[in-house]
Design a protein around this nucleic acid. Structure first.
Length: 765
DNA sequence: TTAGGTTTAG
């Protein structure tokens, strides 16, 4: 019997046992018979105090009464439970509970003649592979909100993790973990938890996780309430992500967890989504900067002792640190880990030196395990014998800011993602990258006397390339200026100047139906529309339909806003937040932004009497990632919101903005760069418009306004195309296609030009 | 007992 799980179910008549398991009647129990695929079911009618056997094993005895044949003499039986199971059962079993056991040993009962019970008793233990299921009639736990805690009480509570220190070796005899919780009462509680076994402390992996503590003692300390472990303390930890499976993390094999508690977790998740900032200092090695603290999720490749107060961990996360990194010198014999792997990954692993209180835990880590190392410090330093500075990674002593090491289990979603990424890493590639970007390469290259400067390179090669029509010959600008429109030309010219100089002003919204262009609305207008629509209370009659689940709550601030979130259901085995579309009523701009970080799509809506509807089209009708999608006021004819359910019904809805717009009757406005390039070639000059969604700059116009990295990239590209402060002779050449077209109005006629099928050269961006 | 969040200084 491989199952060792003990669980409480409520109002569940069928035990979650495999189909091949059969219920055994007490009267058929006999010593020596095969009971491998049988289970016994009964009611707990008596239990004895938990005791220890001479060898220290926990021992717990109960009496079970069979449900059938109540008059039979052998209707009750002694169950002897050993070890961890004994301890767990003693904690939660109550008289009257329904008890199911499988994987038991049937032994002749030495006390049958005295107690008049069954001639055999059952022996049950984890070691024997027993499984126990308990259906409890009893304990209904009461959970205290954090703003109602009183000094000297022992309580049960739920909270969202706002801060935590992963279990570390305390100066006493136990492991310690410090956890700060918050809940919708907006009160914080810092708990100090001790246990000799770190596995018995809450398995918290990140801020935002949700915990349930049972029997935590509340004390006043420095004028504030504080939680501390008391006898019988138990915890469950849950992923705090809305939509993630509600699976408790716990070391206990026995816990109560019912539908009601399931609901509590879901509600806390939704609350936390808009109230807890989880943007922690996590980083990939490729993104580290000198002089910062960050959390790293990684795999342990090697470890070595260094000296009494420090210990070396060699880890990787599949990405490459952009700076030269330090190597901590250790004796080859002291380095643990697969030699071949250590060599293969030598350009991707980094050395992390851990100090003091972290050494003991670091020593115990298994090679290959997945770790989250919290608050690693990066420091730039140059050794005496080197002229380059290298990045050092330190995990300093102490536990400030949650500094420490956590081991993540393989079923952790972040680990799964990391594993998939590590599998995709091409080691050959990383080794080439290393040789190309290494300090050594630079020093060799600089010895080349004919090493070309950027300027020379750009004077020789065009900085833009054509994506089509390669057969066309170049036409001089003078010829173009003297020709009639419309025509298409290939040109070679220099970019003398461009407008707008402030690049963010080049982004507009374009309607491809009516061909109108408009400015991108600023956040303020959106904010006002949200404030106006927050006045309309969510209509509860529109909640929880066939195609969405709704959650509603009232904010704790003085405004007491009602917020409703409707999660659109779709037909997936497991609905993940990153694939989920939600609609929100009554949220603020900030709350909506926070939701977009976690969910695939957010649609702001308001209630009418009989349906949800989109807000004014001056507001975005959809937010996805960093992008706000708008509809054309002229061309849109909004349709009922329930049309979304047709997309939700797809196997794996991709939630494409174009598709969402279509079913909602919205004519989607597209983000576009509009710029005017003044091009010259020595024979003439033309002003050509650039009208580009993404192709020219290889930057989506939709993302530039919210992404400073892309803004920098675009500015750098323009500086390459048109380096500021250069003479005309020193400007690089552009190869472009332009087309001429006629623009006529009542007063005059003119010829305009537009750039097309042209992109910035790959090595420029 | 231990720690009681708010960065080491190697």
């Amino acid at each position: 019997m491989p199952v060792q799980l003990l669980k409480i179910m409520k109002e569940q008549s069928e035990a979650p046992l495999p189909n091949h398991m059969q219920k055994e009647d007490l009267k058929h129990l006999q010593e020596g018979c095969d009971h491998t695929n049988k289970y016994i079911q009964g009611i707990v009618v008596l239990s004895y105090p938990l005791t220890k056997l001479r060898d220290g094993t926990d021992f717990f005895k109960i009496v079970l009464q069979g449900l059938d044949d109540l008059c039979s003499r052998i209707n009750s039986i002694n169950i002897l439970i050993y070890g961890k199971m004994a301890e767990d059962c003693a904690k939660i079993l109550r008289h009257g509970d329904t008890f199911i056991v499988a994987g038991f040993k049937v032994i002749k009962s030495p006390t049958a003649s005295e107690d008049g019970r069954h001639g055999c008793h059952l022996e049950v233990s984890e070691e024997a592979g027993s499984a126990i299921y308990v259906s409890s009639i009893a304990p209904k736990y009461v959970y205290t909100p954090l703003n109602q805690l009183k000094d000297g009480t022992i309580v049960n509570l739920y909270g969202v993790v706002k801060f935590f220190k992963p279990p570390y070796v305390s100066k006493g005899t136990d492991y310690c973990s410090v956890v700060t919780l918050v809940d919708p009462s907006n009160v914080k509680l810092t708990c100090t938890l001790f246990n000799g076994n770190p596995d018995c402390l809450p398995k918290i992996y990140k801020v935002g996780d949700i915990v349930r503590f049972h029997r935590i003692k509340i004390r006043e300390y420095n004028g504030q309430m504080q939680g501390i472990t008391s006898g019988g303390f138990a915890s469950l930890t849950f992923d705090g992500t809305v939509g993630a499976p509600v699976v408790p993390r716990t070391s206990s094999k026995m816990y109560t967890f019912m539908d009601e508690e399931h609901k509590t977790i879901e509600e806390l998740r939704v609350w936390a989504a808009s109230n807890i900032s989880i943007s922690g200092p996590a980083a990939k090695l490729s993104a580290v900067q000198p002089m910062l603290f960050f959390d790293l999720t990684c795999q342990l490749v090697g470890k070595a002792k260094v000296d009494g107060s420090s210990f070396l961990l060699k880890v990787w996360d599949g990405t490459k640190c952009p700076y030269p990194t330090w190597r901590v010198p250790v004796e080859a014999k002291d380095l643990e880990g697969e030699k071949v792997l250590l060599h293969q990954l030598r350009n991707l692993t980094v050395d992390i030196l851990v100090y003091d209180n972290h050494v003991q835990l670091a020593k115990s880590l298994k090679i290959g395990s997945f770790l989250r190392i919290y608050s690693i410090h990066t420091k730039q330093a140059s050794a005496d014998n080197e002229d380059v500075s290298r990045i050092e990674f330190h995990l300093h002593g102490g536990t400030c800011y949650g500094r420490g090491i956590g081991v993540l289990p393989e079923n952790n979603p972040d680990v799964k993602e990391l594993q998939a990424f590590l599998r995709s890493v091409d080691l050959a590639d990383s080794q080439n990258m290393e040789s190309m970007s290494s300090v050594e390469f630079n020093s060799i290259s600089s010895d080349f006397t004919d090493f070309e400067s950027d300027l020379e390179r750009f004077q020789r090669l065009p900085v833009t390339v054509l994506t089509d029509h390669q057969d066309l010959n170049n036409t001089e600008l003078k010829t173009i200026m003297n020709s009639t429109a419309p025509q298409q030309y290939r040109i070679r010219a220099k970019l003398r100047t461009y407008k707008p100089q402030k690049l963010h002003q080049s982004v507009k919204l374009h309607c491809s139906k009516c061909n109108s262009l408009q400015e991108v609305p600023d956040g303020e207008e959106f904010n006002l529309i949200l404030q106006r629509s927050a006045v309309i209370a969510p209509n509860p009659e529109l909640h929880n339909t066939l195609w969405y689940d709704s959650v509603m709550w009232t904010t704790q601030d003085e405004k007491q806003r009602n917020i409703a979130i409707h999660f659109v259901k779709h037909d997936e085995m497991l609905q993940r937040p990153e694939n989920t579309l939600l609609m929100i009523e009554g949220g603020t701009l900030k709350e909506i932004w926070k939701l977009t970080k976690r969910f695939k799509c957010v649609i702001p809506v308001r209630s009418t009497e009989d349906d949800l509807e989109l807000l004014d089209l001056s507001a975005p009708f959809l937010l996805q990632g960093n992008v706000k999608y708008y509809g054309c006021k002229q061309c849109s004819a909004p349709k009922p919101i329930k049309n979304l359910s047709s997309i939700a019904a797809e196997q794996e809805p991709s939630w494409e903005p174009t598709e969402i717009a279509q079913v909602l009757g919205i004519e989607l406005l597209q983000y576009v760069f509009i710029m005017k390039f003044t091009l010259v070639d020595g024979t003439g000059a033309v002003n050509a418009y650039l009208f580009d969604y993404e192709k020219f700059f290889q930057i989506p116009a939709s993302e530039i306004l919210t992404n400073s990295f892309l803004q920098e990239k675009m500015q750098m590209t323009m500086n390459m195309l048109c380096p500021p402060g250069r003479k005309l002779d020193d400007l690089p050449w552009l190869e472009c296609f332009i087309k001429s077209y006629n623009v006529r109005d009542a007063m005059k006629h003119r010829v305009c030009y537009q750039i097309f099928d042209t992109t910035v050269a790959e090595d420029v961006v």
